[in-house]
Amino acid sequence: MTINANNPYGDSRNHHILSVLVQNRPGVLARVAGLFARRGYNIFSLAVAPTEDDDYSRITIVVDISATPLEQIVKQLFKLIDVVRITELDPKKSVERELMVVTVRADGENRGQVVELANIFEAKVLAVGADAMTISLDGNPEKLDDFEDLLKGYGIVESQRTGRVALPKLDREARPRTLKGKAS
């Protein structure tokens, strides 16, 4: 597994989102990550969370499809015994959300500007220090990219993003392609 460093968050042309429902068993994340590593597939991000049902977890993987066709990635994932269902979300037809927490330099003279920027983006100030502040922002990944870019001018001390989660858009066109668990 390689995290694509040139374009760490991907864009809608070369990424696809796989929502992978797995049995909640020990080692399941290692199996999924190991598969990506072994077969040389690239990913942009990966997020794991429990679902409404204790027996299952959902892994949301943003895959880089510029090197390996999506079909092959999906089929290989299906071969993992613990993978129950894979839903493939087209980025154009789904809603994506991601959370970023960022500490940015903000001393006396530009603190006001940083706060203003945070307000424009509807971000939250989580903590304020003598010459820095920590801000959180959630939203679609492009919005986070823009915010991060603008903050760079002030000096980012540290930042962290969660990797995205996604669901199909609720309009008539959004038919998530649910691929039934046909592993072998």
Binding site: Q23, F78, I81, D82, K180, G181, K182, A183, S184
Partner: peptide, 8 residues
């Protein structure tokens, strides 16, 4: 016990 394993 193997909901994800149904070979065609």
């Amino acid at each position: 016990s193997l909901p994800g394993y149904r070979p065609t």
